[in-house]
Each structure stands twice: as structure tokens, then as C-alpha cells.
Design a binder for these strands. Structure first.
Lengths: 213, 213
DNA sequence: GTCTATAATGAGATAGAC
DNA sequence: GTCTATCTCATTATAGAC
């Protein structure tokens, strides 16, 4: 099981390192943060950092474990009321909160995989489970008459949803120069919503509201 | 003008370096190729490489100039017969050929921007011009009754088209492990085609054919 | 223009004292 | 568990001979 939490015993210092690393990565980009900076920001010495994480890869993987748990919780959040269209919008909101909290994994994916090659297969596994959850969700929407799409439509749609969701932050960075900010979430939310819209029935209300973060 | 060709006089060695660097980057990934390897593959000494390109960034930017020219040529290729649906499919084929020939810029974008920070603004400019060409294309399709979409629909669609086109290779790499191969082009082609399909009218034939590369 | 050196970086990683 | 000090190593970059 690739997504289990780490085995090593808990420690306040260790937790602080992870917390600080997550913040630094999220803020400045994973490729612009060195182990020295992380140790410094955590108030410990660089040598001490290596007591907890012998390789930078281990640090990244530990962060990924948190992300994986959060993503699965998000993906498998049950729809409050499947007969109420707004419930699905709320579900989508959950995804965008996740993207923001762990934006290092969305924005800096390639850089992180450079630091931690093992990340690739963990990501593949997680992606599979996340997509399965979305697949079930669309099944539910069809049942309730909110969606009209063939199985094939849905497979292609899920692929495109995943790509747009995973990379819109990097795309936005290129176009705007500035790193992605909370205000940009509405843009991404809208792009994703429009992917789904062509397959919604008249029964479904518009789902292009601005997400709360 | 950021997209002009370089000013330095031509030279066989210089051309060979660029050609070899493009091939190596395309093949192995931009972040896995060192200047030493490039010089070696070009049959010259590492010191000599720095006679032509004082910084690795200059090498990347020179490659980008080729890419930019090819991309603009692709984007602005006139539609052979705007009243013939297949012409638009051919246009899309052109894009996928470009993606393959310069896949380093699609697959290794973040790594390249790490090597050459100036790339970001050049990419932004190029993206803008490319999107403008696609915008005109959709206008043409509307004129000929192949497309039914509001201006707003088209703006969102272009954003999603750009994201899926730009990042599907990286996504595919995560899911499959293996680097993207020519066979995968059909998958990407299909994902892109399905983004557009909901806005096509009955007059437009299906455009989901497999691209030739 | 091309080569042989050799420097200069800058990061990750470790050994061993406390 | 934490620190100081040091090492390794890949890479970019330059100086100067030919």
C-alpha cells in the first residue's frame, strides 16, 4: 500500500519540518526551496534535518502522504443530497480547496517528480482512485437525470477534467507571470465547470459559481 | 520583438549543436541532458560549446526561436477549404505534428523555464498569438455554420484547449510511466477533439480521426 | 574557431562531537 | 536529538593556449 502514513514515530520537530516545508513549497515553488532553507525556517540545523529525512525524497514523500489522504477524503466525500444540483457544486468546491491547500503538487508536479522519482507511481495510483470516485459521481448524476453522456463520453471527460484540474495553475502562471493567487481559483473553477456543462441536462442548474476558499 | 531569429552569424557547428540539443531534449527530457552531453554528441568540446552559447539559457532560447516560428506557421496556416469540414481536421493534425516535433516544450515546460527564466514571457507572447489564430479559426467555423457557440463559450474553450494540448503529454507520462510515444498522439488528438465537439453543429462531420505523424 | 584545462557554484548528504 | 564541520558531486562557466 503506497499511500500509508510513514512508520517513524511522531515528533514535534519532525511535524514542524513538514509543516514548514509544505508552506515554503506552496508559497515559493518546490524547485526554489533548498533543504537548508527548510531547516532554517523550522529553526533547526541542516544536519538535524537529515536526522529525520535522510534524503530530500523522503521529505517529499512524507508530504505526499498527507496530500494523498486529503485527496481521497475529498474525492470520496459523499454527496449530501444527490437529488439537489447544488450538492455537486459543493463537491467541486471541495476539490478546489484541496488544490489550493496542496497547490505544490498541482503547480510543481514535474519539479517534485525530479526530486522524488518514486512519486510518479504513487501519483498514478492516487489518480486512478480519484478518477474512480469521479466516475461513480457521474453515474450518480446520470441516475438522477442531471447528466446525459455515454460511458465513452465520460471516460474522455474525466481525462480532460483531470488534465485541466491538474495543470491550470501552471498555465495561468505562464499567461500572468504572477504565481497563482486565491483570486485565480474562480478562473480555474469556471474552466472545469465548462468541461462538464455540455453533458448536463436541463434539470441541472448552472454550476459556475465562484468557489469559497 | 521576442520571436526573431538570433543575430549571430550562422555556422555549421552552431547549427549542429542546436540540432543535436533538440534531439537530445526531445528524446530524454530537458532536465536530463547536460551541456557536456550536448557538446559530446555534437562532436565538439565543452569549452567550445560556450563559444556559441555562453549560458545554457541562450541555447534554450535559440531552440525556442525555432519552436516559435514553427508554432506560428502552424497556427496561421490557412484553412484549405473553409466549407469543407475535413479541412479543420487537417488543421488540428498540423498542431499535433508540431507538438511531436517540439515535444520538449510541451513535456518539459517547467524544467525549461527553470533553465531559462526569460522563456516565460516569450511563451506568454507566443501563446497569445497562437490563441488569436485559433479564435479566428472558430470565427470562420461559425460563419460556415459548423460551430454554435457564444463568444464567451469560445474564450473558455480556447483556454481548455490550450491546457489540454499543452499538458496531456505530462499527464500521460504519469499514468503510463513510459515517455510519450507516437502511438499516444491518437489519444491526445481524441481528447482535444472532444473538447470542441459539443459546440459543433450537425453540419460538421465527426473530427475524431487518428492523426498521421 | 576549437581545444585543454580548471575554476566556481550550489546543492544534497554525512561523520562525529556534544 | 541537535549541532559543527566537512564531503561529494554534478553542472555551469571561464581563461588562455593553439
Amino acid at each position: 500500500m503506497a499511500l500509508k502514513a510513514e512508520a517513524r514515530p511522531r515528533s514535534k520537530t519532525r511535524d514542524r519540518v513538514l509543516q514548514v516545508a509544505l508552506a515554503l513549497f506552496n508559497e515559493r515553488g518546490a524547485d526554489r526551496v533548498t533543504t537548508a532553507e527548510i531547516a532554517n525556517a523550522a529553526g533547526i540545523n541542516e544536519g538535524n534535518l537529515y536526522y529525520y529525512f535522510q534524503k530530500k525524497e523522503q521529505l517529499v514523500m512524507a508530504l505526499f502522504d498527507f496530500f494523498a489522504a486529503a485527496m481521497l477524503a475529498t474525492a470520496e466525500t459523499p454527496i449530501e443530497d444527490p437529488s439537489e444540483p447544488l450538492s455537486y457544486t459543493n463537491y467541486q468546491r471541495g476539490w478546489f480547496k484541496l488544490m489550493w491547500d496542496y497547490r505544490l503538487f498541482y503547480r510543481d508536479g514535474p519539479a517534485l517528480r525530479g526530486m522524488a522519482p518514486r512519486l510518479r507511481e504513487s501519483l498514478a495510483e492516487l489518480t486512478g482512485r480519484g478518477q474512480q470516485a469521479v466516475r461513480r459521481l457521474f453515474g450518480l448524476m446520470r441516475q438522477h437525470g442531471f447528466m446525459r453522456a455515454t460511458d465513452d463520453d465520460i471516460e474522455v471527460l474525466i481525462g480532460n477534467l483531470w488534465i485541466v484540474s491538474s495543470y491550470w495553475m501552471d498555465f495561468r502562471l505562464i499567461e500572468h507571470g504572477a504565481p497563482v493567487a486565491p483570486e485565480d481559483l474562480a478562473w480555474g473553477f469556471r474552466q472545469v465547470e465548462r468541461l462538464v456543462r455540455p453533458y448536463l441536462t436541463e434539470r441541472a442548474v448552472l454550476m459556475d459559481e465562484v468557489p469559497q476558499v
